Simulated assay, not measured.
Amino acid sequence: MSTILTDHIETPIGPMLLMVEDDVMIGLEFDDQPERYMKDLRRRYPELAMKEIANPCGFSDHLRAYYQGDLGAVDGLPTKGGGTPFQERVWAELRRIPASTTISYGELAGRLGDENAMRAVGLANGRNPISVVVPCHRVIGSDGTLTGYGGGLPRKTWLLNHEGVPIRNGRVDRQADLFEA
């Protein structure tokens, strides 16, 4: 039986549930969607016990620092998403997207070697069990629109704004970058 250490973290966009096993983050989800993370956890850990503790491995402090403005505070935290080999490749590539930066699904597929795999990339992105740390919120539509996010588009908008990405009318405002240069 696996014991998953958990901690509830208050954020400006709602409480999150952090999940850790063997000193590795295995889940980070907004806590208003338990059906989302419990289905994934039961698939990955058919026999599991959850134990609430404060700040497992110091990860909660890193997350609080991110939300307080230290955007690099979550970089390098150890994660294990428990996905298919393709999903793991997508999630690893997501971690290479710097804060304050967005890319399209097509660009992400191209980085993985197949520009036509946009749909598969989108599906893998949507199954990411480690929100924020594996920054699926940084992936947008090819026209700059903010497309699906498991935590909801208002949270995606907030996260991108928090990271300094200008958003106007539901899309990344690339023109704002031109004026700041």
Score class of each variant (00 low, 15 high):
T6Q: 06
T84M: 09
H62M: 05
P85E: 03
A54Q: 13
V24N: 04
H8L: 15
P85D: 00
L108D: 02
N169W: 02
L159H: 01
A181E: 10
V24K: 11
I130A: 12
W158S: 10
I53T: 11
A54H: 02
L108V: 04
D32L: 09
Y45K: 06
V132M: 15
S142W: 07
Y66G: 02
A65I: 11
P15F: 08
R43W: 12
A73H: 02
L112E: 03
G72Q: 03
D7Y: 04
T79A: 05
E107G: 10
R174A: 15
L71R: 08
Y105K: 04
D31M: 13
G106Q: 10
A120K: 11
T147I: 08
E88A: 05
I103V: 07
A176P: 00
L71V: 14
N55G: 05
V139G: 05
R36E: 09
A124V: 13
M16V: 12
P98G: 13
R43C: 13
D22R: 14
G14I: 13
R171Q: 02
E21S: 06
G82H: 01
D40W: 12
A65C: 08
L146I: 04
V172H: 01
R89F: 12
T102W: 09
E21G: 10
L48S: 02
E47F: 09
R42W: 12
M25Q: 06
N55R: 09
P166W: 04
D114K: 04
L123H: 07
A49H: 09
G148P: 00
P98V: 15
R127H: 05
I167F: 09
T79H: 00
F59D: 10
S2G: 08
L108H: 00
P129W: 00
A176L: 13
I26T: 12
E115C: 10
G170E: 03
N55L: 06
E10L: 10
L17D: 03
D31C: 14
I130D: 01
C57D: 10
M19V: 07
R42L: 13
E180Q: 14
R64A: 04
G27I: 11
R155C: 09
M16E: 05
V20M: 02
V74K: 00
V24T: 08
Y149G: 15
G81M: 09
G152A: 10
D75S: 07
Y37E: 06
W158H: 10
N128P: 00
I53L: 06
L123D: 10
T145Y: 00
Q33N: 10
E10S: 13
M50S: 11
A92S: 08
M50Q: 14
R171K: 06
T101S: 03
S60F: 06
V24G: 07
L146Q: 01
R42A: 13
D173H: 02
L17Q: 07
G126F: 06
T6C: 15
M118P: 07
K39D: 14
F86W: 01
V74G: 07
P135F: 01
P135L: 12
P129I: 08
A109P: 00
A65R: 07
G82W: 03
I13V: 09
Y67C: 15
G141W: 00
M19A: 11
G76L: 10
E21Y: 01
H137V: 06
G126Q: 05
L41G: 12
Y67N: 13
M38C: 07
T79W: 00
T79C: 03
P135N: 05
P56G: 12
T101C: 14
A181F: 04
T3Q: 04
G110C: 14
D143L: 14
F179K: 15
R119Q: 08
L17N: 07
